[in-house]
Design a protein around this nucleic acid. Structure first.
Length: 227
DNA sequence: GGCACGATCGGCT
DNA sequence: GCCGATCGTGCCC
């Protein structure tokens, strides 16, 4: 378990994290074989690595969204098995990659037991290794915080595509999830998911407070005033 | 076989 | 803050 400390921090300062991969052990499959709402916040601070033909990029996860399959009207798997979402019905610890808006890819990490289609959308990360390659892949990014800020940007910076659908992140393959350095418990925030018409009210989005690589897109829901 | 729209992004106002 | 790009997928006929 992570050594969470309830220490005080400077609320407006981003968490200081060294690009340190000392905790570079690949997570076991059992990490994903838990309820999706338990895995999702535990993904924050973990490190996703991709070794491609053109080089290696590693990134620390800062924002995720949980999708609870058959119980979740916002999930791609809500209406059952299809050719596109088949990976979500498979074993945990694999990636579900899909194409959307005619031009973007996004990726999920599959959780839970086989046949229970839950997934966690990766929405934001900080590139900690392979910065130059990530900048090349994301040449339109205005600054390094934008390299993997947003689900389609994250996938592009990582060099992942349709061919990676189904890849295992718990083994020796080109995609691996490392333990990394989780944030302190009081740094984890939760709120509604982004861009959904259905089930927009479920607070199943998790992110690291004050992190500049967390995406801040408008919700699909109509404008509302808080308070 | 046809059609409406999406777990988005980047550029422009 | 708003809008267009661009096409696979699901759903209906």
């Amino acid at each position: 378990m992570p050594d969470f400390e309830a220490t005080e921090h400077e609320a407006l300062e981003p968490e200081a994290v060294e690009p340190d991969e000392s905790r570079s052990t690949v997570v076991p499959r059992s990490f994903f074989d838990r309820p999706v709402l338990e895995v999702a916040p535990d993904l924050l601070g973990r490190v996703l690595v991709h070794e491609a033909a053109d080089g290696r990029v590693a990134m620390r996860l800062t924002e995720v969204e949980a999708y609870d399959g058959p119980n979740d009207p916002g999930s791609h798997a809500y209406r059952g098995l299809s050719k596109r979402n088949a990976t979500m019905f498979g074993p945990p610890g694999h990636v579900y990659v899909y194409f959307t808006y005619g031009m973007h890819y996004c990726m999920n990490l599959v959780c839970g037991p086989p046949k229970v289609p839950t997934g966690i959308l990766l929405r934001g990360a900080a590139v900690i290794d392979g910065m130059d390659l990530a900048r090349k892949r994301r040449h339109t990014a205005k600054n390094d915080n934008d390299l993997a800020r947003g689900p389609a940007r994250l996938v592009e910076a990582l060099g992942v595509g349709r061919a990676d659908d189904g890849a295992d992140v718990c083994g020796d393959g080109p995609l691996q999830l490392l333990y990394g350095t989780p944030p302190a418990a009081d740094r984890i925030r939760t709120g509604p998911r982004v861009g959904l018409r259905e089930a927009a009210d479920f607070p199943w989005r998790f992110w690291i407070d004050a992190d500049r690589t967390v995406s801040t897109y408008r919700p699909h829901a109509p404008k509302r005033r808080t308070g």
